[in-house]
Design a protein around this nucleic acid. Structure first.
Lengths: 177, 177
DNA sequence: TCGAACATGTAAAAGGTTACATGATTAC
DNA sequence: GTAATCATGTAACCTTTTACATGTTCGA
């Protein structure tokens, strides 16, 4: 799983420009992958070289022209083959959990701030995923990913709310010791 | 947050060799970061250049000699400064959610297999984190990270178990349509 | 005897981010 | 008038992975 394969996947759903694919990474894909223009545009060019996608120029009228990418039969086959070979893994890189692991080296104010910020981030993610829920045109699988994310974020938020007072109390004791 | 800063963090806890730090990445850090020898050994050498750690050779007796790294006062200060500047973010890369998002392109057998594998992975993670819980010498922050992980994995596992029958039924309908 | 654990490292390649470069239009 | 949106791209850099290279000891 990488930017290239997710671009191919997005083109299995509909013809798009690089700019539109970026918006997909910021919306539907956002809770399980992220990517910048600096990786999306080169990925599309590599897909073009491999003839897994084709391209047409759409005159933009008042806006810049857009390059609309279309998946080829070979591209669709390649994506389906890749899905079959993709292991169901998850990789998490959490600055939040690193901060918590080394909380004994943090000042109490900073610990409180970190917990506040994390609660805010989860609240924002939840609000965002709730807004995605109502797009009726999704497949069952797409709805599953949104609800899976909502479930995880809600329970993590609840965990922080349940544990924070206790954690901060113990932290203060540890610092004073 | 990167391998270098987590190596520095691990040396704030105790003097260790690169080999021992790798084991920490496979245990206490495993649910929020991963790293290979190919990134740990070069990271330790960079830390040595910057004089954030020092090193001594411990004769290994029957085993190879080990390089035992120690944090310097400058190293500890640098790590604390870095913690203060680390934003509480999380980055997830999920092959599982990608597979679910594109489940309509999967055969039913493969979908079932993916869900089975993911349940097994979560079960294994839960069993592993439960084994870490009983190490009594942890700080409150360290216990927090283990319990946070357990909470997340348990709720995600439960979500899959609750949703799988419905998802597979809808998937079969979609394929037959 | 065979694999796991102990122990350290390098080099090439892969994958991605960030900052830069450009420029019109639209909504507030 | 000013920020956001539309639109595409490159280049330098950073981080990490993978594969390779080497060799002993201990337990099953």
């Amino acid at each position: 799983m990488n930017v290239k394969s997710l671009c191919l996947g997005s083109l299995c759903l509909k013809d798009s420009s690089g700019y539109e694919i970026k918006k997909l990474f910021e919306s539907a894909f956002s809770h399980f992958y992220s990517a910048s223009y600096g990786s999306i545009y080169p990925a599309l060019n590599r897909l073009l070289d491999e003839e897994l996608v084709s391209v047409s120029i759409e005159p933009g009228g008042k806006h810049p022209d857009k390059k609309l990418y279309h998946i080829t039969p070979a591209g669709k086959a390649a994506f389906i083959e890749e899905l079959a070979a993709t292991p169901p893994q998850e990789q998490l890189r959490s600055g939040f959990l690193m901060l918590m692991f080394f909380a004994h080296l943090l000042e109490s104010d900073r610990l409180t701030e970190v917990l506040d910020e994390m609660e805010e981030k989860y609240e924002a993610e939840i609000a965002y995923l709730e807004s995605l829920q109502d797009c009726g045109k999704n497949t069952p699988g797409m709805r599953f990913t949104v609800e899976f994310g909502l479930n995880a974020y809600r329970h993590s938020l609840q965990f922080i709310r349940d544990q924070r007072a206790d954690l901060i109390a113990r932290h203060t004791q540890g610092v004073g010791r």
